[in-house]
Design a protein around this nucleic acid. Sequence first.
DNA 1: CGAGCGCTTGATTGAGTTCAAAAATCGTGG
DNA 2: CCACGATTTTTGAACTCAATCAAGCGCTCG
Lengths: 192, 192
Amino acid sequence: MIEPFFDYLRTRLTVTETQLSQLEPLLKVKQVKKGQILLRVGEVCQYTSFVLSGCLRSYVIDTKGREHIIQFAPENWWISEQISLYKKEPAMYFIDAIEDTSFLSMDPSFLESLYRIVPEARPFMDQALINSLRSFQKRLVSQLSESGEQRYLAFIRTYPTLALRLPLWMIASYLGLTPESLSRIRKELAGR
Amino acid sequence: MIEPFFDYLRTRLTVTETQLSQLEPLLKVKQVKKGQILLRVGEVCQYTSFVLSGCLRSYVIDTKGREHIIQFAPENWWISEQISLYKKEPAMYFIDAIEDTSFLSMDPSFLESLYRIVPEARPFMDQALINSLRSFQKRLVSQLSESGEQRYLAFIRTYPTLALRLPLWMIASYLGLTPESLSRIRKELAGR
DNA sequence: CGAGCGCTTGATTGAGTTCAAAAATCGTGG
DNA sequence: CCACGATTTTTGAACTCAATCAAGCGCTCG
């Protein structure tokens, strides 16, 4: 059940089986059905999540009622509302399940234990934050400088398998396009 | 000279004058003229900077040769290429001076000293990273959901004094507009 | 099996770009 | 301090990418 998480740690850090067995009793697996909402705007995010199977997403709803997807989190991805989590402020976006999903939910006290049992994990998680920052910077620049077609091509290049699982309208929302426009872009690309 | 930095610390942390005097000999003030480049794409960023007076900026140059401004850093702001700094990877963007500027340049070893002398500074700097992440998220959402006019209004609301110091074309670059478009937006707003 | 959702296609509109050129401002050297 | 060249800003006109509005199709799932 939680093996994907252990595999994740094994391939990225030097961890012993003893360390992993110490972590095991502290881990809480949660299951949610497609469409279920895990965090609403205005609530305080209490934990960061690691997806074991399925897929979560975070998104905002703008003043005109349109959704804009911030992040997808398929297997082996982390997702949380970092600001809310670290500062205990109300969340700026929603998190929900776009497939039936099982995930590990980790509150700050678990993370402290993780860092105690696997000291290497702390700098690793700090790196993860930096990576997240980088990906937002890249996306911002892409939004500032590239056409819809270029952004779509970059997306399927970066997330080839994920792109196959997602409905068109969600990819469009992530890329800042309407579903109609993305449909036309695809058609255009299909005919060379 | 370095008083602005000490004031910055005094207003945000609980620091004694003794602690500050311990920091003083470790601080390096640098001066640069308008237009001078501090970091180029591909170089490794060695330090994070705190602006004492003047203004720095970071930006990328896209495949069509157009500049896109990532961040402005006037007095009391930090600027660095975080990814390059933390991971020792080549920088993704440029940093240069848009006014004659004096700033403190802090390498990792200085930061270690800072955290030793003022322990409260470490979580504070972590918070700063989270804040940076939040601001990029906000900007991305703004880019995905708002018109040029809305983004401009939000910009002058958020940075009213900075907006007066910056040339129009730089604000346009930051907002993802051409100078022509921003000029028209201003004209439109001026006539109510 | 039908209602709703997601995707496609068409026609039209519109925000913002591009290209061009004039007007205003800035900075620097004489 | 003024003059001149360079840069920045403004304005105009044509164009373009993507949004909007509208309709129809196909699938799923309740």
